[in-house]
Design a protein around this nucleic acid. Structure first.
Length: 299
RNA sequence: GGGCGGUUACCAGAGUGGCCAAAUGGGGCAGACUGUAAAUCUGCUGGUUUUCACCUUCGGAGGUUCGAAUCCUUCACCGCCCA
């Protein structure tokens, strides 16, 4: 039997968690979470992380294991997951990856180029320039160090421009020369299943889920995390809006509305990303039988 | 009953004779995406049209003017003040 990684993906709120548990049980698989926020500890309510009971039902990996202040990236996720699977597949035939972090999923399924981790001093230096002089000097330097990439980046996007320059300075090579543009081959098969609902249905679920999170204590969770509000892990829908409320710039009602709205926007961005992947077989989450058949037929 | 202020596109809100299909923000829609990605960024947003262009809009009706969202008359509605 071929080793297979089943990937269950879809926009936030579509119903991945519940289905993933059942499929995992059905196919005797453990779950690998591909969620860039659930991988952190202490933010379980706002990220709709699997509950204690759910974690008991099926063994999960890559959930709740990082401190909020830990640095993490899609590339680290890739290598961690690949290393994990190497081991895992010695004893198992199927693994179930589920989550909505598009880039994390692609990092595992397609690979991500090998780039150096940027030193903190270099990062701070460039951020410093950006904050005092703006993006122009950074663009200019990128233009001389990597004209190719300069011509194709979104010059309006500070994160991209800054990162490209960081890589150039860190390696002494043009960033574009490190971009291989190839898809890595994995020693296991990948079966992608996308979950889809029509927009109205999805948006209703998202709205209801946010109300549920509030009932479950999201406000307290956010208050506990407030001292860490500047860490990247908390630049996250569900928290940043409540922090704005704590700062006195939203009423609580406004904050909750914003959480719903930003969740809807996020789900749309996820769909935009997923839509261009032709390998995904799309199903409605309630088509459990069809999904199970599809998996069986492809194992 | 009297006085004043207001009525602009999905919402808020600029615009006070031509450069106005109408600033800006919000919302909505679409998109980009390889190292903090639940991040970051972009485009569109009256209609037909690829562009040019044309058509219909600034509470209603009428008027002044070569030309009106902008000026006048009147009606309707909203707000505040005096009765």
């Amino acid at each position: 039997m071929a080793k297979t990684l089943i990937v269950l993906l879809g926009p936030t709120g579509v119903g991945k968690t519940e289905l993933s548990l059942r499929l995992a049980e059905m196919f005797n698989a453990e779950i690998i979470s591909s969620d860039s926020r659930q991988i952190y500890k202490d933010m379980t309510i706002g990220t709709a992380a699997p509950t204690v009971d759910e974690l008991k039902r099926v063994k999960h990996h890559f959930v709740g294991q990082l401190a909020l202040t830990d640095y993490y990236s899609a590339a680290q996720y890739e290598s961690n997951v690949i290393r994990f699977l190497e081991n895992y597949f010695r004893e198992h035939d199927t693994a179930l990856m589920t989550g909505g972090s598009m880039m994390y999923i692609d990092a595992v399924c397609k690979g991500i180029d090998d780039l150096p981790t940027i030193s903190e001093s270099l990062r701070n230096k460039i951020i410093g320039i950006y904050e005092t002089e703006g993006l122009d000097p950074i663009r200019e330097q990128l233009k001389t160090l990597d004209p190719d990439y300069y011509n194709q980046v979104d010059l309006m996007n500070p994160k991209r421009v800054i990162h490209a320059l960081e890589v150039c300075l860190m390696t002494g090579k043009p960033y574009s020369s490190l971009r291989t543009n190839t898809i890595k081959q994995r020693p296991f098969r990948i079966l992608k299943i996308g979950l889809l609902r029509d927009r109205e249905e999805l948006y209703n679920r998202i709205n209801l889920r946010v109300d549920k999170m509030m009932q479950d204590g999201l406000l307290d969770e956010a208050r506990r995390l407030y001292p860490y509000r500047h860490v990247n892990a908390l630049n996250t829908v569900g928290y940043k809006e409540l922090f704005t409320y704590f700062d006195g710039n939203f009423t609580l009602e406004e904050a909750v509305e914003k959480i719903k709205q930003n969740s809807r926007i996020y789900s749309k961005k996820q769909m935009t990303w997923f839509k261009r992947d032709p390998e995904i077989a799309w199903y409605h989450p309630e088509e459990e039988e069809q999904i199970a058949d599809f998996i069986r037929n492809n194992l």
